[in-house]
Design a protein around this nucleic acid. Structure first.
Lengths: 197, 197
DNA sequence: TGACATTGGATAGTGTCACCGTCCAATATT
DNA sequence: AATATTGGACGGTGACACTATCCAATGTCA
């Protein structure tokens, strides 16, 4: 990892300064190395901006007492900032309500859902209602795994898991979906029989 | 939509030029408006770069005969370019094999999966094996919906659906997962009883 | 002890990306 | 004929994640 990048992360407050031993020297420990790995992963694989990564790391440094709160704050810090029309938000809210989900009515994920629905409408994806229902059912399964996997050993562990998991399992999920799509399309369109010709 | 942006898309080859009626005039039709909406959605909500969007649109303009091929090419065009170590790639491949999935052995989604797995390792997410297996099962469900929903009315419709669906259903899925997480964490951590205190 | 390399800190520069502003000449419009 | 609009070319802008340069102070080694 380039030195300049480390300095940049120090400057941006992602990486805490070492304990200074003199005017031009500071001591860094194992914790700093782990922190750097976490930053690289959040910014690199997770695709977070450094601002979002800073917010995420601050949550890890100062864990909120309630894990439910942590998840909400993590979503706030991590998710892309999306603005949606009020009526689109209402649609998203009613969809969530139809699923029987309890979510904060000002959650940024609602705006993200609203924007995604609007986008699908704009290009006219056929059979969206059915698809959304099934996606919601699947999302519920995923969330059950995620939340069940949150360690209860200590608040710090829980926060770290929530932040890292929320960010890192997204690319994992998308990659798996793509691979599964390739398999499914192979089964459906290439089939067991060779393409005639 | 600002005029400058439209000009930019024209310059970048995302939007085909209108039929010129004179040296300083050109005719645009409904198709161009639809195209603009598609572009906005791909680069806005879908988060594609203009280069990726151009590749995606080129697929729509010149549909490959086989839909399976289209999906592969779409993943190539749309997905982030990720490089992974050979051993990480092998791990991803063996995971895919364990699922019984048939995928092209050079699919970019494999590199994405490998990178995601490496990232999870780097920060030490506990219980990854179980989680990955469950995520894979869920991804299989999703892919089944997706592929079953591909219209067979015409190759053009199919390609359009695949490209738009691949891109747009990702933010939808992520938003739904976040909302479902909030609900699940509410149920687990806030519970039916009010926090004592 | 003295030459040299390294470090921390500050500052400014780089490359990329999506987009926006400006200009000009040619054409519509009134 | 006067004015407005358009297409096209070109350069500028702001955000972002770095990256290079400089300097003074310190560490290291002969």
């Amino acid at each position: 990892m380039p030195v300049g990048t480390v300095k940049y992360y120090l400057r941006e407050g992602l990486l805490p300064a070492g304990t200074p031993t003199s005017a031009t020297q500071a001591q860094y420990g194992e914790e700093h190395v782990e922190r750097l790995a976490l930053i690289r992963v959040l910014v690199g694989t997770g695709g977070l901006t450094v601002a979002a990564a800073r917010a995420a790391l601050q949550m890890i440094d100062a864990p909120a007492p309630s894990i439910h709160e942590v998840i909400g704050t993590a979503h706030q810090a991590i998710g892309p900032e999306v603005t949606a029309e009020p009526e689109a938000l209402d649609r998203a809210r009613s969809l969530v309500e139809a699923q029987g989900w309890q979510v904060a009515c000002d959650s940024p994920a609602l705006a993200q859902l609203a924007a995604a629905l609007d986008a699908c409408d704009a290009v006219g994806i056929p059979g969206m209602e059915r698809l959304v229902g099934r996606y919601a059912a699947v999302a519920e399964q995923l969330a059950a795994f995620d939340v069940a996997a949150v360690p209860t050993t200590s608040p710090a562990d829980a926060v770290r898991f929530v932040v890292a998991g929320t960010v890192l399992l997204e690319p994992l999920l998308l990659a798996l979906r793509r691979l599964a799509q390739q398999d499914a399309s192979f089964r459906r369109f290439e089939g067991p029989d060779v393409t005639p010709g």
